[in-house]
Structures are given as structure tokens and as C-alpha cells.
Design a protein around this nucleic acid. Structure first.
Lengths: 337, 337
DNA sequence: GGATCAAATGGAACCGGTTCCATTTAGCGA
DNA sequence: TCGCTAAATGGAACCGGTTCCATTTGATCC
């Protein structure tokens, strides 16, 4: 029942509303004696200033909207944790939006800036369309992309092409020449990393003089079970790969489970490399490409805060490196020398 | 630059502000012709109603505050995913608060209802103090606890004592009589599950006529590495346990890593059982106690929404069951029969 | 002692919606 | 055609803060 207002406080303290407001905002131009009187009145009335009223009169929301797709995806969660670690110690509240369905994407992305309930927007692993970007500009809302790209927007990126190259190169260096790639759908317009890693994969193959074999590339919905199925498909090939590069660690886990089903040994029968270095990859000793997931969230949040403080002329870009982490799922291939 | 207001729209459409407001809120008492005029004006001015103003005049925030401790804890994340799955399709926004430090707990819990920026509050794995609860009542803010208990508040609970009993009973049934328990600090006032599971552990021992041996119980900060260390301590005992019950799967992973360091085999040399059934437990084939993590979040969010719609007279309680999931880290103990 | 100026304070106007009451308009029956 | 009621509409007041301008207070200096 916090219906006490600033005017009640003013009356109780025997001062004007402006003075109470000044006390609330630590304005220096209030005498110590008055400040005390007001503080006493606030305490005795159990007064709680209305955030809504403050927001309306100041024209600021003191909130940041964070939009994530598939909140169940572990790498998205890890990035979000980085975002949260920064925002939870900032003066901004974090409003979380989860977009599970593609058809909700457009609606959500359009409605968030419109309702202007946030002073800034952070999109994680989500590529906005040109129309969305236009909306952001119209609403004049500072926006940062994490793990997604748009030329007009500030972004924190991971060098996915380099990562795809590193992964494939690692397998090639181990003597593998038949290397499968299991990934999400390449033609998803909102998922550019899947294409970038594929580019790196093909470049590594080309450099090593290995022809790209389309039948070695399988694509499907992202997920452990789908990857498991695709692995079975790959291994049913007349000339199956000796190593598999999985687009994500989650998918690498699916690959490994498929092999377990077939009583095949990893890495002796087949080498597997993942991507992301999520926690489970460490537990399962999966060789993978580490990308700074948590850090990308941190950097994204920091970038957003700095942009909100001082808007840059041109979109900023932060590029994070990838790194090979060698564990137990990849091994030298015993070529028929 | 969304400085167009409802008055601009009214002028443009040649109607009163009240009528525009009615159109915005789909009031039935507007003629179709007028509605069209207003819609046209809204579209041509690119008008965006201010959420802040609406909130102030309506006295509702249309937001729900969700507070989690240690957002990096996988079981907390899983619960949160359940919460998000419900709220993201509701008409409420989700404001996320993460409390990493204990000293921020009090401040956060007190300030959230105070700033009344949420119509409802959901605390995950976080026990509020009596003083906090008083604040909630004072602010008249509907509150639900998930995985935490307070007599005056609505809650969604897991039967931790039963789970602790099940875990210990399972080990006893396998022939183990020297059973260690690795846990968080028992005296943490805000962590009641740790005590409940301990109670179940002791009850199972007592029923089997096994004396509780204090040296078999180790407690420390929650975490994989801490559990790893405690395992080393336990195994350095003159008469070490043959099985270990870990308070959480995360800690069970630490136990297993310690054993790997000692070149001991799980489960042949030592049986290990965890708690929670997080995803990694499945990958690592860890025997554990399943609790409905995701579902607890779903139930909590649903309960909160229903309470906000119709406040119950007495605090509601939902109790979720636990279930033994047998995998590869526990095995029959070869007793000296 | 009086003039000057800075500090402290009061309070109306404002932020942009919603709501409710007063007023106008339309529809219908006699 | 008049009267009555219901539907549609206009707009002031309000939500509870902030801000800015006008005013009061008090100290300083000549």
C-alpha cells in the first residue's frame, strides 16, 4: 500500500515538493537541516518513490532490453551470463526477451523499441533484418549485436571463419583427408556463423589440396539428436569420413553418442571436433574450438553502456579470437602409408 | 524521435484525446468511422504510445521481477528456463536480477519491491529473510518462491529430504556401508535444500542401522573444484568411504575428476551419485536424483500469474517429486562376505 | 546599515498516457 | 414532430515524479 507520494512527504516535512525531490536525487543545493527533516519524514511515512513516475518525467527507462533466441542453447546461456555479470552491477535493469519461434522474432524485434521500455538493446546470436534496424534507428535506441552482424549496428563478433579453418586444419594436420561437417541449415538468413565456419572448413580443405565432397556435409535443425542422426547417415556412406567437424559442441555430443551406439571408439575409429567449448565439452574431453562465450556477453554489455553514454559516429566492431583446445576426441589418423 | 503524443494524434485525426486512448485500448465504444480516422493518424504520424506514461496512469508495471542467485549454476539456469518459457508468452515483461554476492542479497531484495517496478516477484533458489517478507507484504507485491521456503509465501518445492534418502538408500541397497556426503555449507541460512538432503542421508543410514560418521561428511563452498578437493580429503582417510553422495551433479563431476586424478575407476573403486540430473549428468552417465528443474520454473511462473489474477487466502505450496536415475557411476559393492 | 549576490526553497507546469463526467449526437417510438 | 435513451465523444483532472523560474533567506562587503 505504497500510496504515499512526494507531496505527502513534503507536507509532513513542512517543505515544498521540489525540495523533497532534490533530497531524493542528492542535489547539493539542500541545506543539511532540511535534508534531515525530509529524510525523517520519508522514513516515518515509509515513502517509496514511484519508478514509473520518475521514468515518465525523466524520459528514461533505466532499463536495457536483452533479446536471446533459444534460451535453452548452452552457448547462448553462457553469453547471457556475461551480459548479466555486467548489467547486474550497473544502474540499469535487465529486461529479458526469449524468442523461441521464428515467427515471434519479427514481432518481438519490432515491438520492443516501439514500446520504448528500454534505453538500450542487446541482441544475442540474433541477426535483425534491415527493417528491424530501421525501426531501431527510428526509435533512436542504441543497439549492440553479440554474435551477429549487421553493417549499420555495433557488434561483438567471433571470427567464425578462422575457427572453422582451425578446426579443419587440426584434423588435416592429424592426417585426416576425409572430413565430415555436421551443421545447422546453411541457408538460415539469421544464422551467419554457420556459413562462416563452413567457409573456414572449405578453405582449409582447399589449402591442403583436398576436394570438398558435398556428401560429407550434412545439415539440419540444431540439436544433439539431429546430429546423432546425421552421423549415422555419414557413416552409412560407402566411403565414410575418418573425422567429423561438428558445428557446435552440442552437436559433437550427438556425434559421440551415435558412435557409442555403433560401438565405435572415439578417437580411435573416428576423430571428432566441436566448436564453442561449452562446459560439457570439458567434462567429456572433447577437442573443440574455444570462443570467448562469456566474454562476448561482457564485451557486448560494456559496449552498449559506453554507446549509451556517448554515441559513436560509426558502428563499432569488436572481434574476438578463437583457439584450438586439444582434448581426447581427436587423434592421428593411421593412414595407409 | 518518438515525441509524437496522443494529443498530436488527436489533433491530426480531429478527435479528442480520450477517443484516441479508447482506440489504443480497443474500447468498444468508438464508432468504426472514428476508429479508422484515428488509426490513419497514428500510422501517418508513426505514433508510439509511451509505456512509461501508461504505467504511471494505470498504476501497473506489466512486469515480473525474477531474482536468481549465482546465475552460473546450471540447475538455477534450468529453472530459469522454465520460468522464461512461461513468461515469454505472457503479457508480462521479465526483469532479471542476479545476486552473486551475499551482501547484495539484502539490498536487492529490499529495493526491488520498493521501487515497485514489478507487479509480481519470483525468487529462485533464494530464501528471503522475515524482514524481506515484511517488505513484500508492505509493498503488497505477490511473491512466489521456487526451490526455497518461507511459511508466509507461496512456493514450489522439491522434496529434498526424500531425494537425499533415495540417493543414500540406493547406495545402501548396493551393499555400501561407508558412504560419504559432500555438500555445501550446512549452516547457510539461505540454503535449506542442503540441510534437507542431509536429513534424508542420515535417515537412510539410521534405517539401515549404519552409524553416521561425521568424518564422512565434508562441506564447503559449492563448486566443482571444491568438491574435487573434498574428495581427496575423504579418500585420504584411514578407512575411506566406498561410495560418495554429492549434493549436486556439479559436485559429483568434481568427485569423478578427483578419482580420475588418482587413477581410480568409477564405479569399480568408488560409487558416486549426484543430485539434480542436469544435462551434463546425462552425458557423463552419472547416477543421480532427478528433480524437475525446468518444471519447477514453469510451475512457479504459472503459480505467480494465477496469484496475481486472484490472490489466495493462504500461501500455496506445490511439492514436486524426486526420482532415482540409475546410470553408470554406481555399482554393487563387493563386500567381504 | 544598506546594497549585493549566492544559496536555499516553494510550487506551477510538465511528462504522456487513462479515466470519468459532461455534452453532443443518433436512433427510435408514440 | 417531439421526447427519451443509449451511444459516441471531448476534455479536464489525475497518476507521481522532475524541472525551472520566482522568491525568500542569509551572509558578505563597503
Amino acid at each position: 500500500m505504497s500510496k504515499t507520494t512526494i507531496r505527502d512527504v513534503a507536507k509532513r516535512a513542512g517543505v515544498g515538493v521540489g525540495t523533497v525531490s532534490r533530497v531524493l536525487n542528492n542535489s547539493p543545493s539542500v541545506s543539511e537541516a532540511t535534508r534531515q527533516k525530509v529524510q525523517t519524514a520519508i522514513a516515518s511515512l515509509n515513502f517509496i518513490p514511484s519508478q514509473a513516475a520518475r521514468r515518465l518525467s525523466q524520459g528514461k527507462t533505466m532499463a536495457i532490453g536483452v533479446v536471446v533466441p533459444f534460451f535453452t542453447n548452452p552457448s547462448v546461456v553462457r553469453r547471457l551470463q556475461g551480459v548479466v555479470s555486467v548489467l547486474s552491477v550497473s544502474e540499469y535493469d535487465l529486461i529479458l526477451f526469449d524468442i523461441e519461434k521464428v515467427d515471434r522474432r519479427d514481432m518481438a524485434l519490432r515491438s520492443i523499441p516501439q514500446r520504448n521500455l528500454a534505453d538500450g538493446l542487446l541482441l544475442v546470436s540474433l541477426t535483425p533484418s534491415d527493417m528491424d534496424v530501421e525501426q531501431f534507428a527510428l526509435a533512436d535506441i542504441p543497439t549492440v549485436l553479440v554474435d551477429a552482424y549487421h553493417p549499420a549496428l555495433n557488434r561483438v563478433l567471433v571470427d567464425n571463419a578462422a575457427g572453422g579453418y582451425q578446426a579443419t586444419k587440426h584434423l588435416i594436420d592429424l592426417g585426416h583427408r576425409q572430413i565430415g561437417y555436421i551443421s545447422d541449415y546453411l541457408n538460415d538468413p539469421f544464422n551467419s556463423p554457420v556459413r562462416d565456419r563452413f567457409t573456414g572448413y572449405k578453405r582449409a580443405l582447399a589449402e591442403a589440396g583436398i576436394d570438398f565432397r558435398p556428401e560429407y556435409h550434412r545439415q539440419g535443425e540444431h540439436g544433439r539428436f539431429q546430429a546423432q542422426q546425421m552421423t549415422h547417415d555419414l557413416l552409412a556412406l560407402p566411403d565414410p569420413p575418418t573425422a567429423i567437424f561438428a558445428y557446435s559442441d552440442t552437436q559433437a555430443i550427438g556425434v559421440i553418442e551415435a558412435l557409442r551406439e555403433l560401438s565405435l571408439s572415439v578417437p580411435d575409429d573416428l576423430s571428432v571436433i566441436g566448436f564453442d567449448n561449452i562446459e560439457a565439452a570439458e567434462y567429456l574431453r572433447i577437442t573443440t574450438i574455444r570462443q570467448a562465450l562469456f566474454d562476448s556477453g561482457v564485451k557486448g554489455a560494456e559496449l552498449l553502456l559506453s554507446i549509451m553514454a556517448a554515441p559513436p559516429q560509426t558502428p563499432q566492431e569488436i572481434l574476438l579470437p578463437t583457439e584450438l583446445v586439444t582434448r581426447r576426441t581427436t587423434i592421428q589418423h593411421n593412414n595407409a602409408f
